[in-house]
Design a binder for these strands. Structure first.
Lengths: 135, 135
DNA sequence: CAACATCTTTACGTTAACGTAAACGTAATG
DNA sequence: CATTACGTTTACGTTAACGTAAAGATGTTG
């Protein structure tokens, strides 16, 4: 349970280059503190990076991911703000749920191809058995 | 159940520009036939486009999507080819299943933010009730 | 037959998300 | 104390996935 992290520690942990992390800071998606000139990442900053990379795996743009992350913090404001916020959340949810359905269809397609393949392989093995019986 | 489609028909149906479709052909992801100089898309070609756009929504690159699509057709070859093919399928599956897990985590995070938000809104409404009682 | 509508090719432009390289500080280590 | 490890900034390069614009062919309609 370390308190802080260097750039290369995070780079190693998440399997990205330091350049990537510096790029995220440059664009404002990360805000490490400094020890002199060196970047120091707190646990929350590390978490941000983890969320960014998760978003990336989902195929989200950095901006989209940042919007998501910014939502995680805050359920505050007046009634109007809350309602607007809720509708933005609903949009995001709808989008992500569509992705979910797309993913399921794709995976089920892939699985059926896999089964066809395994059937074909089973036939080969069957032939081997027959050859053995004959010989 | 039309047999063939023009470029703008498909563009309208799938809400992309003709340029996008031409680009996919240029890169070899689509192979429409021609009537003179004009592109003609058969139903299978239209399906290909649909799969490409699904892959895009999943955040896959065109190359990744094309690899997926190429898998759908063929469970043939000799034993070695089948085994190699099966392992490629397994890789793809693992990757997609990871996405699935990432998606679920993200969605559940989002849902909990949504609930917090609705709680906060409920409080506002509660206050309105109290004000009414008093007045 | 003139004016759209729809299509074509060619070619240069654009954005996101980094990669790569140069040139330089600092600190620990053999 | 020289080298090795790790960090910094600056800046130009790269790739994918189209956008945009120009210039022209073809067909159809008032």
């Amino acid at each position: 349970m370390k308190k802080t992290f260097s750039i290369s520690e995070l780079a190693n942990e998440f399997n990205v280059t330091p350049r990537t992390i510096r790029f995220y800071e440059e664009k404002g998606y990360l805000n490490p503190t400094r020890d002199g000139t060196r970047r120091i990442f707190s646990s929350p900053e590390r978490t941000k990076l983890r969320l960014i990379l998760r978003g990336k795996r989902l195929g989200l743009s950095l901006d989209e991911t940042a919007e998501l992350i910014s939502m995680y913090g805050s359920a505050q404001g007046n009634r109007q703000q809350l309602e607007k916020f809720l509708s933005r959340i609903a949009e995001k949810r709808a989008e992500l749920e569509r992705r979910q359905r797309d993913l399921e269809v794709t995976l089920s397609d892939l699985k059926s191809v896999e089964e066809q393949c395994q059937l074909a392989l089973a036939e080969y093995n069957q032939n081997v058995k027959n050859v053995r019986k004959v010989s």
